Simulated scan of single mutants.
Amino acid sequence: MSDDAKKRILLTGATGGVGTALLARLDDEYDIVPQGRHARTEGLRDRLRIADVTDYDQVRALMDGIDAVVHLAGSASPESDWEAVLGPNIVGQRNVLEAARDAGVRRVVLASSNHAMGGYDRHEQWPVHSDMPPWPDSLYGVSKVFGEALGRHYHDAFGLEVIALRIGWMSEDPLSTDVDLLRAMWLSPDDAARAVRSALEADVPFGIYYAISANPNRRWDITDTMLELGYRPQDDWTAFPGAHEEVVEGGADSPGNWPEGS
């Protein structure tokens, strides 16, 4: 890639909520190759690369000429059962990392999740730092811990650069819920793009970082995300018209059924 050429980025899961937001915000900056299982909009119909991440050969065919991968594809619900996470989240993550290694791709940004550490949230053991032991709150969370560990292996064994982002709760409207815990971990679509851009560009070969907006009530430390990746969140749910924060010392209680509905 020449110095003035755009980086060619494979964006898996480009038709999902996070993928759609990233494509809209980063498409002018990077040469994005979107992947999905089916186009949901006319705008994607001609450019979407159709592939199933559980099929290695299909994933490998996506990698030629790619500089970096942003891997979002997979089951996204913390209420997913084992069968729902086994294929896309376990096998799929391995396929993406192995195909990237085989094709000589330099960097993979993995979409991890706050649910990899959701046990701390369920038991209200805050604050949470990225270097604390994983404590998944669901099989979905377990699959994200697996992805982080597999990324560590591919970095150590093969030199693949891997950045895992523990994505918070992304929504266009943080006031669509009155659950304090969700508002606290809100990640705006614009901040999501800022976090992914930082993960693509930072001179860091491996790391696991929280990606959350600048919410005053957040319980998850993003200091290392800011210092090491250069991430600068600019959004805050309390800045929305009509927003009002009820300050609770130590943080408001978590929902008793966490992570259901998150």
Score class of each variant (00 low, 15 high):
Ala199Thr: 09
Gly118Met: 04
Leu139Thr: 01
Gly251Gln: 09
Ala192Thr: 04
Gly87Lys: 03
Ile208Ala: 12
Ala239Pro: 05
Met132Thr: 02
Gly256Gln: 14
Pro133Met: 01
Glu260His: 13
Asp156Tyr: 06
Leu227Asp: 15
Ser198Asp: 07
Arg8Ile: 00
Ala76His: 05
Asp55Cys: 07
Trp169Ala: 04
Leu48Ala: 01
Pro88Val: 10
Gly250His: 11
Gly261Tyr: 05
His155Asn: 15
Asp131Asn: 13
Arg232Gln: 15
Gly250Glu: 11
Arg106Asp: 15
Arg45Asn: 07
Pro205Gly: 09
Leu150Asn: 09
Gly19Thr: 02
Asn95Gln: 05
Trp237Lys: 00
Asp253Asn: 12
Gly159His: 08
Arg47Gln: 11
Asp67Glu: 00
Val204Leu: 14
Ser213Glu: 14
Leu182Tyr: 10
Pro205Thr: 14
Trp135Met: 14
Ala116Cys: 02
His71Glu: 02
Pro189His: 01
Trp237Ile: 00
Tyr56Leu: 13
Gly104Met: 08
Leu10Gly: 00
Glu148Phe: 06
Gln234Ser: 14
Gly141Asp: 00
Val108Asn: 11
Asp180Gln: 12
Asp52Gly: 06
Leu139Cys: 00
Met185Ile: 08
Trp126Glu: 04
Asp57Ala: 13
Ile50Gln: 10
Asp180Phe: 09
Gly17Phe: 04
Gly19Asn: 00
Tyr231Ala: 06
Asp137Lys: 02
Arg37Leu: 10
Leu11Lys: 02
Pro88Gly: 08
Asp3Ile: 12
Gln58Gly: 02
Asp156His: 12
Val69Cys: 03
Gly92Tyr: 02
Gly118Trp: 01
Arg219Lys: 12
Leu110Trp: 03
Arg94Phe: 15
Asp28Thr: 11
Asp121Ser: 14
Arg194Ser: 09
Trp82Ala: 13
Leu23Gly: 05
Asp236Ser: 15
Leu160Gly: 04
Trp258Tyr: 15
Ala111Pro: 02
Met117Trp: 06
Ala184Met: 10
Ser113Gln: 07
Asp253Thr: 10
Leu10Pro: 00
Glu260Asn: 12
Arg40Ile: 06
Ala39Pro: 04
Gln125Ser: 12
Ala111Thr: 04
Glu83Arg: 14
Ala164Ile: 04
Ala211His: 06
Thr12Cys: 10
Val69Trp: 00
Ala184Tyr: 10
Gly87Tyr: 04
Val70Trp: 03
Met185Leu: 07
Pro78Arg: 01
Arg122Cys: 06
Leu182Met: 15
Gly17Arg: 06
Gln58Ser: 05
Arg106Gly: 12
Leu200Gly: 03
Arg232Glu: 15
Gly151Met: 12
Ile66Tyr: 03
Ser213Ala: 13
Gly13Thr: 01
Ala157Cys: 09
Gly16Phe: 04
Phe240Tyr: 11
